[in-house]
Amino acid sequence: MDLLTFHVDGTPYALPLAAVAEVVASPAVRPVPKGPAGVLGLAEAGGRVVAVLDLAFLLDEQAPASAPEHLVRLAAPHDRSALAVGSHIGTGRGTPVPGRDPGPGSAGHVIVAGVRHILLDAAQLLARATQSEAP
């Protein structure tokens, strides 16, 4: 499985490349007042206004919100949403491995270059963001 890999609050995560439309560097994210807590705001990517999901919040990580370094715009049918990710972004080939419950928004574990990553599920993340309450 070809994967996009990145870290959130020091934890390695992976997303199938098939679920990725593009990666945009240094995006300007515009907050949406009264919007759901799982959404950082809106950004422009590839001519689209996309919702930027707050990965740290959705994955229950503790990292304080900071300006994302990259936006990972999701592929159709979720192509009007993007994930805000930080550094250590890369690609690799991974193999699913069994493991304990990987947590919300996740579909399991994969080993990429010998390192265990949590495999993300775009649809689950989106549903979690939609259902999150406004702060």
Binding site: A28, R30, V32, P33, K34, G35, P36, G38, V39, L42, A43, E44, R48, V49, V50, A51, L53, H78, R80, S81, L126, A129, T130, A134
Partner: peptide, 26 residues
Amino acid sequence: RPLPAPLQAVSLYAGAACLPDGTIAL
């Protein structure tokens, strides 16, 4: 354009527009 799916339940906004300077206006 209409707001993307996770924001459609926010009734305060009718959509978003990308301005020529790159700003997004709700």
